[in-house]
């Protein structure tokens, strides 16, 4: 029996370890090694921090990096603010069929590709788009209005595209809060605001954190939305990575960029978990 258990453990461990080592761990280590190589001649490399120095010395790179981080954080906060009332409504204000229907309606848009959703916003926002025509029609604008290719459009796209990943964890955690507990809060003299602050939000914290982490990750690593809605000048960090790899074929610098993005995302996720006293297992698992 003991050997049987050991064999079973070994059999189940193998795929996990293969997956994590070959597809996650070793590639990232390898990417780090590549990022430390400096090209000194054709086919000749030496180990140095040159790529990272380039990153810190070139204002455009650093600026793009910081801008991406700040805008991702903003997008996360906006998504949270928009999604929370909706999630609360679905979780606590409606019951039964209506509840399932509303929840389903939240999910539907995200079963189609992000590309399609972004395409939809392009049709709405561009110069010849629906909104522009609408504004002219009601007389608020004299000529075509270009609403695409600015930071607002990027923000809108990011918020829209990440909405699901905020709504689902929020609805799940809010639903697990018994009505009784909210009623007890009122019964003991609490007002709407104090119940929200002291009972509902603390209860929803794991959902808020996991939603924020996922939305932040998706925004930070997004390539499609900034490129399509932000246009050529969108300055998103993933675009720099892409161009180093695919356009300029400078994999060493590209790897360094990739590693910086990884460090940034890990740092912010870790900070978020520490700040709220949550753990990755609890929020994601």
């Amino acid at each position: 029996m003991r050997t049987e258990a050991k064999v079973g453990l070994g059999l189940l461990l193998t795929p996990l370890l293969l997956w994590l080592s070959l597809l996650i761990f070793i590639p990232h280590v390898d990417m780090f090694i590549v990022s430390l190589q400096e090209r000194i001649g054709v086919g000749k490399y030496q180990t140095s921090l040159a790529n990272y120095l380039t990153f810190f010395q070139e204002p455009l790179y650093l600026w793009t990096f910081l801008r991406t981080a700040v805008m991702s954080i903003l997008a996360t906060l906006m998504t949270l603010l928009i999604a929370f009332p909706v999630s609360y409504y679905i979780a606590k204000m409606v019951k039964g069929r209506l509840q399932s229907a509303l929840f389903l309606m939240c999910l539907v848009p995200f079963w189609v590709s992000e590309l399609v959703r972004t395409f939809g916003w392009m049709i709405l926002l561009r110069e010849t788009g629906i909104f522009s025509n609408l504004l002219q029609f009601v007389g608020l604008a004299d000529g075509p209005v270009e609403m695409l290719y600015n930071d607002g459009a990027i923000m809108l796209g990011l918020v829209y595209t990440s909405m699901l990943f905020m709504v689902v964890p929020l609805v799940t955690t809010l639903e697990s809060l018994p009505d009784e507990v909210i009623e007890a809060g009122y019964d003991l003299g609490g007002s709407g605001l104090s119940v929200l602050r002291e009972i509902i939000i603390p209860h929803a914290m794991p959902g808020i954190v996991s939603g924020c982490i996922v939305v932040f990750m998706l925004s930070l690593g997004n390539y499609l939305t900034p490129t399509m809605l932000g246009g050529k000048e969108s300055l998103w960090f993933t675009e720099l990575i892409y161009s180093q790899f695919i356009v300029r074929f400078n994999w060493e610098l590209g790897s360094a960029f990739g590693f910086m993005l990884l460090i940034l995302s890990s740092a912010i996720v870790w900070g978020m978990l520490k700040l709220t006293g949550q753990s990755l297992e609890k929020t994601m698992g």
């Binding site: 018994p178 507990v181 007890a184 019964d187 003991l188 609490g190 914290m205």
Partner: peptide
């Protein structure tokens, strides 16, 4: 009036003292 709920509805996000002091804080 105050109510002791069927499943008690103690606030799991607070400790015992915070639970009892909740109404007083209000």
């Amino acid at each position: 009036v105050n109510m002791v709920f069927q499943h008690l509805a103690l606030f799991p996000m607070m400790n015992i003292a915070e639970n009892i002091g909740y109404g007083l804080r209000r």
